[in-house]
C-alpha cells in the first residue's frame, strides 16, 4: 500500500476538535498530518505549544523546502501559504491572502490534492467562512477521500456545510468517528 497523507482544515470552533484528535492518536502514528488552521495574524507564537500540550506526536511549523516525514504533525505557519511539492517537501509563499486568509485552506488542500492524489484524506472541521470548500472539491476530484465534521457537532457550521455543498463528501463524522477512521488507516 502506498503511504497516506491527511490534511485537516479548520477555523472558528475547531481548536477543541483538533486537540481532541491529536490527544487520541498513538505515539507510533506514522501518517503525516497537515494542519491548516486560521489564526490571528499577530498571534505568531504559542499556537504550536498550545496544540502540543495534548499531542503525543511532535508538531512542527515547516520551513520552506523542508522534507515531509512520517510520524509528524505539520502546522501551516502563520502568515504564509503552505504548499506541497512533488518530491515530498513543503514550499511556502507570502502571496496575498485568499478569502482574507493566510494560510488559505483552499490553497493548501488544492496543492496537497495535486501531489498526493488518491493517497490523500481531506478533513474539514468547524469554521465561520467558506475557505476549504473548493479545496475539498479538489481532494475529491483528484481521487482522495473527503471527510467533514458533522455540522450538528460544529460550533460554527459555515465551513463544513459549504464543503458539503461544494462536492461529494465520503463521510460526515463526529470527532470521535474521525479519530477512529484515522486510527484505522494505519
Amino acid at each position: 500500500m502506498r503511504s497516506k497523507y491527511i490534511i485537516i482544515g479548520g477555523s472558528a470552533g475547531s481548536f477543541q476538535a483538533i486537540t481532541k484528535i491529536l490527544s487520541e492518536l498513538p505515539k507510533n502514528y506514522n501518517i503525516p498530518i497537515f494542519l491548516c488552521l486560521h489564526r490571528l495574524k499577530h498571534v505568531r507564537t504559542g499556537f504550536v505549544e498550545a496544540l502540543s500540550i495534548k499531542s503525543k506526536l511532535p508538531i512542527i511549523e515547516p520551513k520552506d523546502k523542508e522534507m515531509i516525514k512520517n510520524g509528524r504533525i505539520y502546522l501551516a505557519p502563520a502568515n504564509y501559504h503552505m504548499y506541497f511539492e512533488l518530491g515530498n517537501y513543503f514550499s511556502l509563499s507570502t502571496e496575498e491572502s485568499v478569502n482574507h486568509s493566510r494560510p488559505s485552506i483552499d490553497l493548501s488542500f488544492l496543492s496537497a490534492a495535486q501531489v498526493f492524489k488518491n493517497n490523500l484524506i481531506g478533513i474539514i472541521l468547524s469554521g465561520a467562512n467558506r475557505d476549504g470548500a473548493l479545496g475539498m472539491k479538489e481532494v475529491k476530484d483528484y481521487g482522495g477521500i473527503t471527510i467533514a465534521q458533522d455540522p450538528e457537532e460544529c460550533q460554527v457550521k459555515t465551513m463544513t456545510t459549504a464543503a458539503i455543498k461544494a462536492t461529494t463528501i465520503d463521510h460526515v463524522f463526529i470527532v470521535d468517528e474521525i479519530i477512529n477512521y484515522m486510527k484505522n488507516l494505519q
Binding site: 504548499y83 506541497f84 511539492e85 514550499s91 509563499s93 502571496e95 490553497l107 496543492s111
Partner: peptide, 9 residues
C-alpha cells in the same frame, strides 16, 4: 522558480 507558487500566480 518553485513550480507550485509559479503555477498559482
Amino acid at each position: 522558480y518553485s513550480i507550485k507558487s509559479f503555477t498559482r500566480r
